[in-house]
Amino acid sequence: MGLDIYVGSLTRYFAGDWQTVAAQAAAAEGIEFTTVRPGEVPVADTPEAIWERVAQWQAAMGAALGFDGLWADDPDAPYATDQPHWLGYGALLVLAAQIEHPDLADEADSPQDFAASRAFEAAKQGGSELFPSLIGGAEWWLPIDGIAATFTGTSVDGATIGMGTLDLLAAELGMLRERLGVDGTALTQALLTGGPLEEPGLNGDRVTYLREWGVFGLAVFLELTTQARRMSLPLLLDY
């Protein structure tokens, strides 16, 4: 199961009118590729019907948050996507947790099993003050200007989802970048090269391995968060 980040309208997302980077690569090579998303609205629904469902959902969400209207969810709006991989996402969470709980940082912390990190467990259980949406398990970030908050809501398809705002995500990523001392050159290089190809052995440099995957995950999240804020459209984790 892969992990992708999608930026675009919810109507396009739930209509399945988009392709992951893996699907795009397969199409370019003429390879048949099938993506299965358990939360997708049935394809029997027309784009118009899905748009109406999204509009109803937006109205309910806006009322709950005290807003008269949210973003324009145009089904024809452009979308952006990339794949941080689970290792990039896991490393990002571990590094954030280590910043919040440096006394619990462990050289054995692994992006493969971020939940096993004592720092992550402490941040998760105690309620992260520095990275509430990332460590708190948010999967959707919404373009609601002027609010930096997390909340739990019911998505368009009825699933319960941890959510946050794009402003909050941008602040968390900016703090993570600053605390890690990652400059623009490192972010660009990470986007070009991706994460490390090989996991270090028992006596290998696991700290560098974790950081390199974390920088890659950070680069992907920063790039797509910037695009989401520019387009004023949601950012979702897709897996």
Results as ranks from 00 to 15, higher is better:
3 L>P: 00
6 Y>K: 01
11 T>M: 04
13 Y>I: 01
13 Y>G: 04
16 G>Q: 05
18 W>F: 15
18 W>I: 06
19 Q>W: 10
22 A>V: 14
25 A>W: 12
26 A>K: 10
26 A>C: 11
27 A>W: 02
27 A>E: 11
29 E>N: 12
29 E>D: 13
31 I>A: 10
32 E>H: 13
35 T>V: 13
38 P>S: 11
39 G>M: 08
40 E>R: 13
41 V>D: 03
44 A>H: 09
47 P>E: 01
50 I>E: 00
55 A>E: 12
55 A>V: 10
56 Q>Y: 09
57 W>Q: 07
58 Q>V: 07
58 Q>C: 05
60 A>N: 10
60 A>V: 14
62 G>D: 03
64 A>I: 05
64 A>R: 13
64 A>P: 06
64 A>H: 08
67 F>R: 13
67 F>N: 10
68 D>Y: 02
69 G>E: 13
70 L>I: 06
70 L>S: 05
71 W>E: 02
71 W>T: 00
72 A>Y: 11
73 D>G: 04
73 D>T: 06
74 D>M: 00
75 P>A: 05
75 P>Y: 05
76 D>V: 08
77 A>L: 03
79 Y>H: 10
81 T>H: 07
81 T>S: 14
81 T>C: 11
84 P>I: 02
85 H>C: 09
85 H>E: 12
87 L>C: 00
88 G>P: 01
89 Y>E: 11
92 L>W: 02
92 L>M: 13
96 A>K: 02
98 Q>M: 12
98 Q>K: 06
98 Q>L: 05
100 E>C: 05
109 D>T: 04
109 D>S: 03
115 A>L: 11
116 A>L: 12
117 S>L: 02
119 A>E: 04
121 E>R: 13
122 A>V: 03
124 K>Q: 14
125 Q>D: 14
127 G>Q: 04
129 E>G: 15
130 L>G: 07
132 P>V: 01
133 S>N: 10
134 L>G: 09
134 L>R: 04
137 G>R: 04
138 A>Q: 01
138 A>G: 01
143 P>N: 06
144 I>A: 04
149 A>T: 15
150 T>N: 08
152 T>C: 10
152 T>P: 08
154 T>R: 14
156 V>W: 03
158 G>N: 09
159 A>R: 13
161 I>L: 07
166 L>N: 06
167 D>L: 04
167 D>R: 06
167 D>N: 11
168 L>S: 04
168 L>F: 08
169 L>F: 02
170 A>P: 06
171 A>E: 14
172 E>S: 02
174 G>W: 10
177 R>N: 09
178 E>G: 10
178 E>R: 13
179 R>H: 08
184 G>L: 09
185 T>H: 13
187 L>G: 03
189 Q>H: 13
191 L>M: 12
196 P>M: 00
199 E>W: 00
201 G>M: 00
201 G>F: 00
202 L>Q: 14
204 G>A: 01
205 D>S: 06
207 V>Y: 06
207 V>A: 15
216 F>W: 02
218 L>H: 13
219 A>G: 02
224 L>M: 08
226 T>A: 15
226 T>E: 15
227 Q>A: 14
228 A>Y: 00
229 R>G: 03
230 R>E: 15
231 M>Q: 15
233 L>D: 07
234 P>R: 02
236 L>G: 02
238 D>H: 12
